[in-house]
Every structure is written in C-alpha cells, then in structure tokens.
C-alpha cells in the first residue's frame, strides 16, 4: 500500500517537474530565439564562411575546405595580431583590476561624502563613445599635441607617441585603462556592497587598521566575485577594436594591430586585390576559439581556487 502511494507521489512529482520544465522553456523562448538569431547564427555562419575562398562582394564563392586555416597558421601578421592582443591584455588587465578595485574601495569604504560625484566622474569615460575618445586622444598624444607641449614646458623633446612602434601600444593601453576603469569600478562596488557592515565594525573593534581590514577581511570575501570580474576583463581586453581602429588603425606598421583590426582589414579593405572575407572569417573563428579556451582555463582556475578556499 505504502509502495503504491509512494509510486503515485513520484509520478505526480515527475509530472509537476515536467510542467515546470515546459514553462521554463516557454519563458526562455524569446531569449533563446534572440540568442540563436543574433549570436548563434552569425557564429555558425562565420565558421561556414571560413571554409570559403570568398571576397564577400560577389555571389560566387569557392569551397576551400581548411585552406584558409592552413594559410592562417603560416601568416606572421596574424600571429603578430594575436600576440598584440595578448600584449594589450597582459598590460591592461592588472592595471584595470587594481585601479578599479582601489577606486571602488575608496568610494565605498573610505570617502563617504561626495562619493557619488566621484563615481560619476570616473564612470564618465565609459559612457563616452570609444571612437570619439580615440579621435580626441589621437590629438592629445599627437606630435604637436598637449602631452608633447607639456613636455616642452619642462625642456623635454617631443615624443612621437602614436607614430612610434615602441610607444604606440603603451599609449593605447593607458587610454584603454582610463576608458574602462569605470566599468570595473562598478563591478567591484557591487562586490564590496555584499560585504556586511558588521565585519568592518568587528575589525575596527579588534583594532585592525584600514589596510588590514581590506587585505585580511574584505579581499578574501570578494575574491570569488573578483575571479569573475577578472575573466570578464581578460575577455573584454582581448576583444579590443574600436579604440585601436580610431587611434592607430593597427599601426605604425602593425605595432598595435590586434586580432579584431586584422579581421576587419582583411575582410573589408585593400588597395590592390580583393578583400578576403573567407580568410578573415577563419582568423575570427581561430581567435574566437582562443578566447573560449582562455575563458575555460580561467573558469577552471577559479573553480580550483574556490574549492581550495572551501577546504
């Protein structure tokens, strides 16, 4: 009798679960449809185009199999672009994470008066169009721009900031950090606000100074969220495009050419010869795969670290 009753219950449970599942899918339909249309379809199309010998301008294309990928793996300018993307990311991410965290902590826990105003000031560059920032910065860092004029006041020689292969990447990174620091400050602020005020008070009663409170109490608590912020920051830095396109166009002589500018240039512009959309797609797919791999590695490391923490 008992067995029969429990059987009926489990059937009812399953039915209810199925019903919930169906409703979940019904509510997810709009999001799934949008995802498939605007993300899934273009990604898979790009995979398909990467197998074509196609300029993108005509209605005829030749199936090239893996030829584009074979050529790509022997293309030193592609590897230069991938290398530059990583260079940008490696320099940019530590600065972005530390400066944004410092600002967030400052405006969350130290400066109380006028914190909202300061937050807005640091968030302003985020809402400014990147290409506009790029164009303005091009003039500020230009040969006769305000930075060089300032150097001139101290009797220093002007520096060709954007026209020199040695300095262009550094300048782009500085502008990139200034432009995006507000975004990560907001992420850190959200993380910091999850730390209970009681903990600050307890630390104060125990005699901890500000640095000790931050390093021994606050930082360990927000670290799991920090991992996610770091992964977002890494991926976003690897995808940099508009800032470089407007400031240096990938130059001088490919010194700041990143994967996105390589793909854009190959797909759309050429002085002699037709553009190569198929080849550009193979570069986009390959670099996309690299970013996915980075994401997986990042998440795995984050998982291992958080497991260790719980142990």
């Amino acid at each position: 009798m008992k067995a029969k009753a429990s059987g009926t219950t489990s059937v009812l449970k399953r039915q209810r679960l199925r019903k919930i599942n169906i409703w979940c899918w019904v509510f997810m339909i709009p999001a799934v449809l949008l995802y498939v249309l605007f993300l899934g379809y273009p990604i898979l199309s790009s995979v398909f185009y990467s197998t074509l010998d196609w300029s993108g301008m005509t209605s005829n294309a030749v199936f090239a199999g893996l030829d584009n990928f074979r050529e790509l793996f022997g293309d030193k300018y592609f590897f230069n672009a991938v290398g530059n993307s990583f260079k940008y990311m490696v320099i940019c991410v530590p600065f972005l994470l530390t400066i944004s965290l410092a600002l967030a902590y400052l405006f969350n826990s130290i400066i109380k008066k006028g914190a909202a105003v300061f937050r807005t000031v640091f968030f302003m560059p985020v809402v400014t169009t990147t290409s506009i920032v790029g164009i303005i910065m091009m003039f500020i860092f230009g040969g006769t721009g305000s930075v060089n004029q300032m150097l001139g006041l101290f009797g220093m020689k002007p520096v060709n900031w954007l026209g020199s292969g040695d300095y262009a990447m550094i300048v782009v990174v500085i502008v990139g950090v200034w432009k995006d620091v507000g975004t990560y400050m907001i992420y850190w602020l959200a993380a910091l606000q999850s730390v209970s005020q009681d903990l600050y008070e307890a630390a104060m009663i125990d005699g901890a100074n500000r640095w000790q409170t931050f390093s021994k109490i606050v930082l360990p608590i927000i670290m799991p969220i920090g991992g996610t912020i770091a992964i977002l920051c890494i991926i976003s830095s690897l995808k940099v495009f508009d800032l470089i396109q407007t400031m240096t166009n990938g130059g001088p002589f490919f010194a700041t050419d990143v994967a996105a500018t390589f793909v854009y240039r190959t797909a759309y512009s050429s002085a002699t010869g037709t553009p190569r959309l198929g080849y550009a797609s193979s570069a986009a797919v390959t670099f996309g795969a690299i970013i996915v791999a980075m994401g997986i590695i990042g998440n795995t490391i984050k998982g291992i670290l958080s497991k260790r923490r719980t142990v």
Binding site: S55, T58, Y77, N160, G163, S164, G165, G251, P252, F253, F254, A255, R265, T266, S270, A271, T272, G273, T274, P275, R276, Y279
Partner: peptide
C-alpha cells in the same frame, strides 16, 4: 584577373607607413 587577385599584406602603403615610424 583583378577580381581574382587577393590582397597582399603588407602592401606598399603599409611598408611606407613602417618607414614613417622607422620600424621596418
């Protein structure tokens, strides 16, 4: 033939850009 020829990197213009930056 012009429609068949694919763009070559670096182009002459890009090389001159390298000369301007003294990095090529």
């Amino acid at each position: 033939v012009y429609a068949e020829v694919q763009a070559i990197t670096p182009s002459l213009g890009q090389i001159v850009q390298g000369v301007l930056a003294q990095s090529v």
